[in-house]
Design a binder for these strands. Sequence first.
DNA 1: ATATGATTTAACTAATCGGTTAAACAGATT
DNA 2: AATCTGTTTAACCGATTAGTTAAATCATAT
Lengths: 203, 203
Amino acid sequence: MEKKTEDNILWAAEQEFLSKGFARTTTADIAKLAGTNHALLHYYYRSKENLFIKVFEKNIQTIIPLFCSLTDNNLPLKERIQNFIEVHFDYIVQNPRLPYFIINEILSNANCVQIFQKQFQSIINEINAKLEAELRQEYETGHINNITAGNLIYEIISLNICAFVAMPVATQLLNISQEEYLRFVQQRKAENVVTILGRLYKK
Amino acid sequence: MEKKTEDNILWAAEQEFLSKGFARTTTADIAKLAGTNHALLHYYYRSKENLFIKVFEKNIQTIIPLFCSLTDNNLPLKERIQNFIEVHFDYIVQNPRLPYFIINEILSNANCVQIFQKQFQSIINEINAKLEAELRQEYETGHINNITAGNLIYEIISLNICAFVAMPVATQLLNISQEEYLRFVQQRKAENVVTILGRLYKK
DNA sequence: ATATGATTTAACTAATCGGTTAAACAGATT
DNA sequence: AATCTGTTTAACCGATTAGTTAAATCATAT
């Protein structure tokens, strides 16, 4: 019952790491946000690195189920891809800091690369193989244009996340209001679907 | 003639800052790469911050001319936009670390936001106004679909940079070879042109 | 040659940060 | 009440880092 302080620290660590990244977050900051002493952080989690890994793994894991829908549900290919784009997009809308966080940490921490691979490798290989076979068959029967599963997945993710990674920069530069931003976000979601499906299906 | 050490430090700082960002770069690292002592860095540039600002400003400035071609040259709108997409894309191919660097530092350093705005604000407003007027006229005469200049510029930049920002993550995950990567890059360049022009021009 | 000014070095300071430790505290059990 | 266990606190340590300083070195002009 009384894991309050321990939980608070994990919660605070997630806030800090997600908003500032590993390098610019201090254990004292986390402790302060958790309303406690930074020695507690080491008492419960041994090290900053250890605590960070927990946060990183937790966030990575929440993404995995999203990808399963690419091959797991029974919708036809076209609807399944559209569904994936929209679900993935909506998830990023709810977690706008996550893409930048993951990219940032993978670029700067070799451990994160390993965690990312460990968590994702098998599932992505499975999805990739399934989708690859399906795409090839659809291509050979003349239903879609030629594209590899890797490229398709990559393009979907890129189109979906770029708006959020570059958004802070763009909003700083052009004076975009909150309403314009929300309109822009919804517009991008629809456009990403059109772009990807347009790439797949002959006009 | 003998500004060698001073120049070396600036060069080394650019290498370090671009690859590791401000927070994870130390003055000692820069000095070591420049083949000198870290006291020299402070002798010539006063502070790490000051040196960083020089590097950041220099890199920001190299981007500005790219954007001028959006309204400055005499090509028809369609060719001018295509040209901009391709020139911008090629520039990123030559400077693949720059997008991430700029985003990263703007997100973490308020000074960078100001520098970015100071350098870009007037030029982007000018280009935006010109392009906005042109797009509106083209729309009203039925030549293109309705889109704001801000959205158009934003989409071009996003499409062009996302492949490079997320690339390290993707290559870690899927085992993409150097040849596949180069092929993918060229493919994306052409596809970005098609996507943007497809967005602008009625089918 | 020597004086002058710019450049370079090594040793230092002060501050920050991750992590440790020992002692204090609280709550439950006997 | 005494003890034991888990939790919290405050003080400290060692390493790293940005920045300083004073002395040494080098180049150049007189």
